[in-house]
C-alpha cells in the first residue's frame, strides 16, 4: 500500500465539510418550505455559509497537498 497519511487527513476534512454543507442544505430547504416568500434571502445566506464551510475544507486539502 502506498500513499501518505495526509491523504487520510484530506478525506477526514472532506467528511467534515460534507456534513456541514449537507446540514446547511437541509436546513435551508426546511426554511424555504416553511417560508417560501423568503427564498431569496435564504438562498444567498445558504451559499455564503456553505462557502465558509468549504473554506475550512480547502485549507485542509491544501495542507494535505503540501505535506504529501
Amino acid at each position: 500500500m502506498t500513499g501518505s497519511i495526509a491523504a487520510l487527513g484530506m478525506g477526514l476534512a472532506v467528511i467534515g465539510a460534507g456534513i456541514g454543507i449537507g446540514t446547511i442544505g437541509a436546513k435551508a430547504m426546511e426554511a424555504i418550505a416553511r417560508q417560501p416568500e423568503a427564498v431569496g434571502d435564504i438562498r444567498s445566506n445558504m451559499i455564503l455559509v456553505a462557502a465558509l464551510v468549504e473554506g475550512a475544507a480547502l485549507i485542509a486539502i491544501v495542507i494535505a497537498f503540501l505535506v504529501a
Binding site: 468549504e54 473554506g55 480547502l58
Partner: peptide, 13 residues
C-alpha cells in the same frame, strides 16, 4: 490573512 487565502483557494480549487 486567512480570509483572502480562502478566497484564493476556493475559486482555484
Amino acid at each position: 490573512f486567512i480570509k483572502p487565502l480562502t478566497l484564493m483557494l476556493r475559486l482555484f480549487a
